[in-house]
Computed example of a mutant assay.
Amino acid sequence: MTTTDLHRLTGAYALHALSDDESDAFERHLTACEACAQETLELRETAARLGAAVAARPASELRAQVLRRIATVRQETPGSPGPALPVRAGLRGRALSRWALAACLAAAAALGGTTVWQHQQAQEARDQARSAARAADEIAAVLAAPDARTRAAELTGGATGAVTVSLSQDRAVFAVSGMAAAPSGKVYQLWFDDGGVMRSAGLMTPGRSEQTVLMKGAVDGASGMGITVEPSGGSTRPTSAPVALMSFPS
């Protein structure tokens, strides 16, 4: 394995994607290569932010819903026969069962809309989970690319940011920590810097001080990136002075 090959293993090493032999060789290389040591540290920090970005916390009402349903649903052993009833009890039971059936049908009609709503909510949750998984896979592909390069910088208000670029993937990932919330009704928007002309690269998630974002669109030769504060929903071009500007790592 050549020195050039070792220089390209920073992303894979940070994500624990190397074999034992490759890890041993790369760790020996780190002791003599300050640039790779610094880049590996930055990629590990970015990977940690990525984990925090895709983590999902259950809804606060989930526990109460589960406990409420446990209290109202009776569990029976599958296939167990019910107790035998006397004739009169059986007749009375059949009469009561007709009332129970009518009540169940009425309840089903009343709750039909609720069932549809719950199904829609569950489908939306599944779609969001699939979307998050796809984004995580795309971010991981950029971070683990052999030619991935990272640059970190201090941002406005004490925040720290790191941008990772892979020319082979033609994509860029931006991770930030300690970002102050955008003003009410506003959102942070990312931009590719195409020789001084800003091209939208998507929106950051409002209200999150730590996040990792796959910048929207191809790098396509951009020399850097910027962040501006824009109206909710974003803008086609910057409407405010940038709160941060970063050049891409060479």
Rank of each mutant, 00 (worst) to 15 (best):
T156L: 13
G157P: 01
G158V: 11
G158N: 07
A159I: 06
A159P: 07
T160H: 14
G161E: 01
G161C: 05
G161S: 03
G161Q: 05
V163R: 07
T164M: 03
V165C: 03
L167K: 15
L167P: 01
S168Q: 15
S168T: 15
S168A: 15
S168N: 15
R171I: 09
V173W: 07
F174G: 07
V176L: 09
S177W: 12
G178A: 14
M179Y: 05
A180L: 05
A181N: 06
S184F: 13
V187I: 11
V187P: 09
Y188V: 08
Y188H: 09
Q189F: 01
Q189R: 00
Q189M: 01
W191G: 07
D193F: 04
D193R: 00
D194V: 09
M198T: 06
A201V: 04
A201H: 04
G202C: 12
G202H: 04
L203E: 10
L203F: 13
M204V: 13
T205V: 14
T205D: 13
P206I: 07
G207W: 07
S209D: 12
T212A: 05
V213A: 09
L214G: 04
M215P: 03
M215N: 00
V219N: 03
V219I: 11
V219F: 00
G221F: 02
A222S: 08
S223C: 10
I227C: 00
T228A: 01
S232Q: 15
S232D: 13
G233S: 08
G234Q: 08
R237W: 05
R237D: 10
R237F: 02
